[in-house]
Nucleic acid binder design. Structure first.
Lengths: 267, 267
DNA sequence: CGTCTTAGG
DNA sequence: CCTATGACG
């Protein structure tokens, strides 16, 4: 008879989900799905409401700690992270008022990793916001580099990036070379971010699987025809790659124009 | 065998209906109801859209002539009258810019009567609008007197009066002595208007029938409990009283927070 | 509570 | 198309 001596396995199931309104998603049964899926960390974006208007008891009743980082403007943007385990530290915002008033970053630090929930700006409403987005993207790389230098635990960057890198990340790459979210500048930025030492967990797990998207326009029945984009990502610090057990997109889960992206880490 | 010599009977079925949005009401099947009810003259209030946004083909396809008098402000107020018979004359507004920009009066003249479609101001949004309403009410009596003096055909005043006169016209008269729509001032005004030579066709036909309302708040399930007010009226010039054949409220017709009020005249 | 609006996506 | 808002009722 042989005995194996090993430490206790710790699994972390992390989900990123742009809800297009937390209240709307709750009204469509979000809490029931969460009760079934049981993510350990649930990062949501576009909560579109502040603390006064939000009732997250349906989620805290499931045993989650709730951390909200709403935008200043009513009905706009905002992120929230729900965690089964109480984090060692919570950091609201990135220290830049320009971004923090828009509720775009929320970090939870755990023993084995830090989960950085982010909602990156959309550029679709015009050139002004596209310029704002590009500035944010450059800021974000510097910001992440600073976190690393400061000794924050290895990062999981979870969120709606509002951009993707490769042609197979969207249904119609040819027609969208100039569209916000797939400009050469944004694709290059994404590549640079990966070169900084991050891994796209979905691609790591699924290779070049085509037609796997996380967002579909509400218009023209895009979702039914799978005319989508992969905008929601779970990037991990390269040092976490050996811990990836699974990564996926859950297009059958429908509370929003996005679907959840999930990642299972094992420590 | 006996022969009766008599002129051809002419019936006019007139309906007044506050739609709380003509587009919304159409989306709930208004045209199907109109096709069944076949009013000769349909007076609607709160159309809440201008000509560019409205598609009334579902009604004109039923054989109606359409006359619109929208407000200037988008999504606000406005009246429209639909008539099977082409009127002899159509008068948009009352000549007062203060009221005509809010789309509150539209008159169609026929051989036997004139149908004055009116949406009287609501006072519920504050004392400023209640004062505006009271000024309107006084103006309206003078205006109607002027029409009479000018030799307009005998009037049917059809519309949402946003007020009622007697305690049996609302579910909770005691609690609403100071509420806009049932203030002593408005009740007195209503009595004065009747004293000017008008008859409330519903009361003429139904006497003191209680609990007959035309509006219910959307809040707190008021309509299911019949907690309502009778705000929509078809007043007729006293000279038309011998022609009243029927008058009613149709609470089972639901496209709005109001229900239709109807009047059958025979000439 | 519900129909409009406008902003944002 | 969809979720927010704010005005109005």
């Amino acid at each position: 008879m042989t005995f194996f001596l090993r430490r206790k396995i710790h699994q972390m199931n992390i989900v990123s989900y742009n809800l297009n309104g937390l209240r709307s998603a709750l009204s469509k049964g979000l809490a029931d799905w969460v009760a079934t899926a049981q993510p350990d960390v649930l990062c949501v974006q576009e909560i579109k409401a502040g603390r006064e208007l939000l009732d997250v008891s349906r989620l805290t009743d499931l045993g989650y700690h709730a951390y909200l980082h709403p935008a200043q403007k009513p009905g706009y943007s905002g992120v929230a992270t729900f965690s089964k385990e109480k984090p060692l530290a919570v950091t609201e915002g990135c220290g830049q008022a320009l971004y923090d008033t828009e509720g775009r970053v929320l970090r939870l630090d755990f023993a084995h990793c830090a989960v950085l929930n982010t909602y990156m700006p959309s550029g679709t409403s015009g050139p002004e916001r596209q310029a704002f987005k590009v500035e944010w993207l450059h800021f974000f790389r510097r910001y992440v580099a600073g976190l690393r230098a400061a000794g924050v635990p290895p990062l999981v960057v979870a969120g709606d990036f509002n951009c993707c890198q490769r042609e197979l990340d969207l249904h119609n790459p040819k027609a969208n070379q100039k569209s916000p979210g797939f400009t050469p500048e944004e694709r290059q930025w994404f590549q640079n971010l990966l070169a900084d030492g991050f891994t796209d967990s979905f691609r790591h797990h699924h290779g070049d699987a085509p037609q796997r998207y996380s967002w579909w326009s509400y218009r023209a029945g895009s979702r039914a025809r799978n005319v989508g984009w992969r905008l929601d990502h779970l990037l991990v610090d390269n040092c976490l790659v050996p811990h990836i057990r699974h990564a996926d997109l859950l297009p059958d889960v429908v509370h929003s124009d996005h679907c959840p992206a999930s990642l299972l880490l094992e420590f």
